[in-house]
Design a protein around this nucleic acid. Structure first.
Lengths: 177, 177
DNA sequence: AGCTAAATTGACGTGAACGTAAGGATCACA
DNA sequence: TGTGATCCTTACGTTCACGTCAATTTAGCT
């Protein structure tokens, strides 16, 4: 009914768990193949490397994670995909830095440059996130306040009602979790 | 250059500060007349009452506040204007409740109903806001962590550089705010 | 080799949230 | 009473972020 796939290990020597196709990835992260292709199209996701155009795209788990992060930021930051792309330059820079760190043969000045650049990106992103987080926190407080007031009024209404006639079917004093 | 408007008080008996036109409102809240008309069109904003269609829209400061709130929620909640409309039913309900409170001749059971309804709306909104606030807080923490790590690496890089040759033009130990 | 599910590119379609242009009416002031 | 700025409605245009359809190919099984 729904089989016919490299069930577990096609060749046990392959990098464990590789061989995800676009449909699998879409299901994993909760989106559609079209969206993934679109993100690749506009440069939000790197195109699968060394794929003889026309062949199926193959994804690794780290690419799935990247996509997850992209979607998370998309949902939380409320910026356009274009802005998001520039924001994500941070991650790319940091990835490059990590790359450079592994091979230790890098010019220290160049390395510092990369690090400083990465720091700038992270800070811009942080600023944006902080601002939104603050605003949301304010809103949350206001709503809590409102809720408190409404609840109090309900209690008052119930109390005065109980004074006029004894509590019948309407139970007084709700769950109060 | 930019005069020709009821500068301060057309008739000192009028409700203070009324007589805002759509362009004024737009400037005040930082949007365009088109957007305001659009919001009225889709029912996000009530249409100016008793306006002989074809006449200019007139706004009061409370309507400006309402618009501010709408835009704030639009920016913060990340929901469609349609969803936002239903969310704002809360405010309308609460407004109705306040209305009913002023005239005290309301059936207490009806009043309780209204209050309960308002509470429900506020709680749904609060839930939504809390969830987003939490997610954003997580993201903020992660970014702070990242920044810390990057900064440490920069310090390390600077230190090792200082060890190899004495600090020249590059100043060590940045502002550190 | 053959079958079928899923993938490929290309193109056009769509809903949301406005922008923009046209032609005319209104408003505050002189 | 005129005049220029602003506003009115109507309607078509636009951008973003995908959806959908079609005609082919590819991949995994048997």
């Amino acid at each position: 009914m729904e089989s016919r796939r490299p069930t577990a290990s096609p060749t046990p020597s392959a990098p464990v768990g590789a061989s995800l196709r676009i449909g699998d990835v879409a299901r994993l992260v909760g989106t559609t193949p079209r969206t993934i292709r679109y993100y690749e199209e506009i440069g939000l996701l790197a195109e699968a490397p060394a794929r003889p155009s026309g062949q199926h795209r193959i994804y690794t788990h780290s690419e799935v994670e990247r996509l997850r992060e992209v979607m998370r930021l998309r949902d939380l930051l409320g910026v356009s995909l274009e802005e998001l792309k520039t924001l994500l330059a941070a991650e790319e820079a940091r990835a490059e830095v990590r790359e450079q760190l592994r091979r230790e043969d890098v010019d220290p000045r160049r390395r510092r440059e990369l690090l400083a650049e990465a720091l700038g990106h992270v800070e811009r992103q942080l600023e944006l996130v902080r601002h939104r987080a603050d605003e949301l926190a304010k809103l949350e407080d206001e709503l809590s306040e409102t809720r408190k007031r409404v609840r109090r009024k309900i209690r008052e209404a119930d109390a005065s009602a109980a004074g006029e006639f004894p509590p019948a079917l309407e139970r007084t004093g709700e769950p109060q979790q």
